[in-house]
Every structure is written in C-alpha cells, then in structure tokens.
C-alpha cells in the first residue's frame, strides 16, 4: 500500500542519481566528507546502520545529504526467509526512506535469517521454484510496506546448488518477472560466481532484462589459496570485473554504478582512482550504447 501524499517519482527529479557513487562507510567517511570529491556523484548507505542511531552515524548521514543524493541498500530484510516480516521494522524503514527521499531501495536475493535469528551474512537461496515463489511474494510485500520502488540484488554464493533447480540467472529473472521488480545488478558477484562455478558471465548478463536494471555494484574480492573467490569488498576492483562492467553498461545503458569497499579500506585517493576508472568505463560504454 502506497502512503498517500508522497511521490517518489517527483522527488527523483530533484536529486537524480547518475554516474558513479561510493558506499558511505565509517572508515572512509571523515576524508570523504571533508574533501567531497566532485567525481563522486552520490552515496549509498545500509539503512540498518543508521535507523534509530544517533552519534557519528547520524552526523555522517546529515553531512553526506548536504551534497549528495543518497541511495539505500538493505542488509537484513532478505527476500528468501520464510518467517513473517517484522512489521515494526518495515514501518521504521519506510519512514527512514521517505525522510531520505530515495528513488529506490534495494535488498538482497538471499537468506539472511532462520526463525528469529540473523546470520549477519548473505546465505544463498536454493535456485528452486519454491524459493522463487517465496522471494517474489516477499519482495512485493516489502515494496508495499515501505512504499518505495524496490530492487533486488543478485548475491555471490560459494556452495554448489543441487541439480534439481534453475540456473542462477534464470532464478534471478524468474523472481524479477514474478514480482515485476527492479534489479541492482552486482557485476562482481556475477564474476565471482562465474569463476567459482565455471560459467560465462557475459551469457548471464545477456539474459538479464535490461529495462529492469536500475543500479550496478562493483567491488573487489578475495581469492583464496584453493582458488575459491570470496566477495569480501576488501580489494581493488580487478580488471576482469571492469571488463564485465563495460560489457554490462553497453547492454543496459547509463545506470548508476556504485563502488563498494567495506573492508581493508585504503586511503581515499586510491578509491578515487578506482572511481576515475569507473567514470572512464561508464562514459565510453554509455557512448557506445547511445551510438548504437
């Protein structure tokens, strides 16, 4: 149910989210908020880190909002759990998002909870019809409760799926279509999964309905000694992920791209150098799209 008297669409026009953004994280906030680099066009936050919290986090958000549009990316309202949602939390989240005037909110297509216990990590859903049904229904439920457009994000996974389910991309598309939802396309997650499970990441991108993509995530990841890739957001973006981003942007057009860095955070200049690379890819890829 949409809340009356509030139009997300009209507010999007006021604070348009385009180009390259960066995740607002505690460890880089001081320098980021002091320097306010012009190459950063917007910031993304995890609402769980700010809802009902004062102090430094409140200050960080207030300072960021002076210059940048803010996008929200949830961590705990995972779409694959089977328990009823906490209506109180969703109401609180909806209030928080309205205050921020976000153009859309995103959550992960994963399992983050069992019963009343939270994993504080993104565990994989089985790519089955049952999970697709549950996730699409829950997505619609959250969207109604928060009264905002909701995008799901594809996640990385490390455990092989059973043989009785869908391919990952077919599972993601199934949920998108059933829920008529938007997609936050995480290019690094696709790359990580493609290397861990030996599939062609470009073929994955080709199957994504481009009109549903509203945002892209890129990040670096950790490669273990045994070759398993873990989505840590703790390393620079590797060239293969930049290449896949370029391919993706040529397909989907100029959707906003977020650089995620959550761990092992380097000096801001190193991140801004990655932002510059992202801008270069963004501009060239979207010029190709426009020319085509």
């Amino acid at each position: 149910m949409r809340r009356r008297g509030f139009s997300f669409e009209s507010r999007v026009m006021d604070r348009e989210v385009t180009g390259i953004g960066i995740g607002l994280r505690y460890d880089l906030a001081v320098e980021l908020l002091e320097r306010r680099p012009e190459t950063v066009s917007w910031v993304e936050i995890h609402p769980e880190n700010y809802v009902d919290r004062g102090g430094r986090y409140q200050e960080m958000l207030d300072l960021a909002r002076r210059d940048w549009p803010v996008i929200t990316h949830g961590l705990s309202t995972c779409l694959g759990a089977v328990e009823p949602f906490d209506a109180g939390y969703l109401a609180q989240l909806g209030d928080f998002l309205r205050e921020l005037e976000i153009p859309w909110h995103s959550e992960h297509l994963c399992l983050g909870q069992a019963g009343d216990r939270f994993f504080h990590d993104l565990l994989p859903l089985p790519f089955t019809e049952e999970a697709a049904t549950i996730a699409s229904q829950r997505l619609a439920e959250v969207r109604d409760a928060i009264g905002a457009p909701l995008a799901l994000e594809n996640v990385s996974y490390y455990a092989p799926q059973g043989t009785n389910g869908l391919a990952e991309v077919d599972f993601v598309v199934e949920v998108l279509e059933r829920a008529d939802a938007k997609l936050l396309l995480d290019v690094n997650n696709i790359y990580v999964n493609s290397r861990n499970f030996d599939f062609d990441p470009k073929a994955y991108i080709d199957k994504i309905p481009r009109e549903r993509v509203v945002q892209i995530h890129v990040a670096g990841h950790h490669v273990r000694d045994d070759g398993l890739r873990i989505d840590t957001h703790g390393q620079p973006v590797p060239d293969d992920v930049y290449d896949l981003l370029s391919y993706t942007l040529q397909k989907v057009g100029a959707v906003p791209v977020l650089l995620e860095r959550d761990n092992n955070i380097p000096p801001l200049d190193e991140l801004l150098s990655e932002v510059d690379t992202l801008w270069s890819i963004y501009r060239s890829a979207t010029e190709v799209t426009r020319a085509g």
Binding site: E48, L75, S76, Y89, Q113, D116, R117, F118
Partner: peptide
C-alpha cells in the same frame, strides 16, 4: 543457543 536475535549488527 541459535545465533543473534538482533538485525542490527551493532
């Protein structure tokens, strides 16, 4: 005992 009950990491 089952893991954290809170959704807030903090």
């Amino acid at each position: 005992t089952g893991g954290p009950r809170t959704r807030y990491f903090r």
